[in-house]
Design a protein around this nucleic acid. Structure first.
Length: 427
RNA sequence: GUGGCUGUAGCUCAGCUGGCAGAGCACCUGUCUGUGGAACAGGAUGUCGCGGGUUCGAGCCCCGUCAGCCACCCCA
């Protein structure tokens, strides 16, 4: 028993026990596969940035209230990165004339936000970011959505389980203009739209009127938000859906005028993926087109489209849909038992031989009755146990026991690796 | 940052209007010293999140604090 006081982990941080670490690596691998399938290159930025970097465009909430900011020993205000896009903008701006366009980059790494932790949200999280810089076309937007769909398919999230909802900011702005919703009201109205799914219809309507919309404007807004055919009025969206069809992912994508996204910097296409089973109300991933960011950080104007996905929500969604592989198994499918002290050296040698053949082997550390050793092997998720006892030695054999079927075979030492492979394959 | 719920054995939790801290699972030992997942018998386990207060007496009541969860806010 731990009589000493365990100093607790910093609130909202993540402790990756092996199983959680395996999930993290699994996500990283699936993210890599989806990204590389479309030719994107992996990159990364500093984990600590100066606070100023985020002041330009990240939104006041994120910078002032949700960043881990502190003063370093030299007196500078630094922050643990809360998002990647500003770093991307800077790094691209610095080499803007040297890069080959389109730039296709992806990244998977840690981020920090000083928020109140709850389900699906921690203060430390891993995020997949993927962006294309250069082209400004619906087809480029479609490619990013196709990457997202590729990932979803890759982890087993079929279209009946999760969906990507798409909208276009310019379309919405045009519609807002038709309702005579003024420029300075747009952000508030966007927020209003964003909240619609979370509130009851009456409360939402009341809220809308309170913030200054007229009844006519509200009625018009509802008509817009209910109109699933509205995309046909946008040439960009028509081209987008045509491209998505060609890319073979249209079963994942739906138009939804309610998707607007909170971030300021989106200028065109916006999209968010949601779990349809509804266990988590949070978006699995979200992104869109942001054509002004580079100019905003001091580079030459450059179009961009991209999205981000946090590891926490997708982990929950995959878990709830029973889509996660078993991460608890030992990396070694084989455990070498230890029969008695006299056979210690010979057992080590046998284990080494099997490893030499390319099979991972873990070793039981001390002599104990075989029942206990099998029980341990089973518990760590090994599939096979090797037994080298006096009888086996006498006959120059090794007993190979399958822990899944319980069957056991006796083979010569030279045959051991081959027999193990056979047993693992039939499993 | 605002409001609410929770914190008891390794895990899940029970514990009445304050009166000796419990169950199930897991674990350990044995039946079974060359064969695990079953059964049976036995066994160990707690600063009752932490600090203070009220009381003869606090797991229970009060205050503070930390952590987790939920709804806001915001967003991955």
């Amino acid at each position: 028993m731990a009589k000493n006081i365990i100093i607790s982990a910093v609130k909202g941080t993540r402790e990756f026990y092996p199983e959680a670490m395996a999930l993290r690596n699994y996500l990283h691998q699936k993210v890599r596969q989806a990204s590389e399938a479309f030719g994107y290159q992996e990159w990364d930025a500093p984990y600590i940035e100066s606070l100023e970097l985020y002041a330009a465009k990240s939104g006041e909430e994120l910078v002032k209230k949700q960043s881990f900011t502190f003063e370093d020993r030299g007196g500078s205000q630094v922050t643990l990165r809360p998002e990647l896009t500003p770093s991307l903008a800077r790094m691209v701006a610095k080499k803007q004339r040297q890069l080959a366009y389109p730039v296709r980059w992806w990244s998977f790494g840690p981020f920090w936000r000083y928020e109140r932790p709850q389900k699906g949200r921690s203060r430390e999280f891993f995020q997949w970011n993927i962006d294309m810089l250069g082209p400004d076309s619906p087809e480029a937007d479609a490619e990013l959505i196709a990457v997202a769909a590729k990932f979803m398919r890759g982890v087993g999230l079929a279209p009946n389980l999760a969906r990507i909802y798409v909208n276009n900011r310019r379309l919405m702005d045009a519609k807002f203009d038709e309702l005579f919703i003024s420029e300075d009201m747009r952000l508030a109205v966007s927020n209003l739209v964003d909240r619609r799914s979370k509130m009851k219809a009456e409360a939402w309507a009341k809220y809308a009127l309170e913030m200054g919309l007229s009844q006519t404007q509200l009625d018009g807004l509802i008509v817009i938000l209910e109109n699933k055919e509205l995309w046909k009025e946008s040439e960009d969206l028509v081209r987008l859906f045509t491209a998505l069809e060609a890319l073979g992912v249209s079963d994942y994508v739906e138009f939804d005028p309610n998707i607007v996204r909170g971030l300021l910097y989106y200028t065109g296409t916006v999209f968010e993926a949601f779990d349809l089973s509804g266990g988590v109300r949070r978006a699995i991933l979200g992104g869109g087109r942001y054509n002004n960011l580079l100019a905003d950080v001091g580079g030459d104007p450059l179009s961009a489209v991209g999205f981000a996905m946090g590891d926490v929500v997708v982990g929950i969604v995959l878990d709830e849909n029973d889509l996660l592989p078993n991460f608890s198994d030992s990396p070694a499918p084989v455990m070498m038992t230890l029969f008695d002290d006299n056979l210690q050296i010979e057992s080590l040698k046998l284990a080494a031989e099997v490893r030499e053949a390319g099979i991972n082997v873990t070793m039981y550390p001390k002599v104990k009755n075989l029942g206990k050793q099998f029980k341990f092997a089973d518990k760590i998720g090994a599939k096979i146990a090797l037994v080298l006892g006096p009888d086996e030695v006498e006959n120059a054999q090794v007993a190979i026991k399958s822990l899944t079927s319980g069957t056991q075979v006796l083979v010569t030492r030279a045959q051991v690796p081959e027999e193990i492979q056979k047993m693992l394959a039939s499993d």
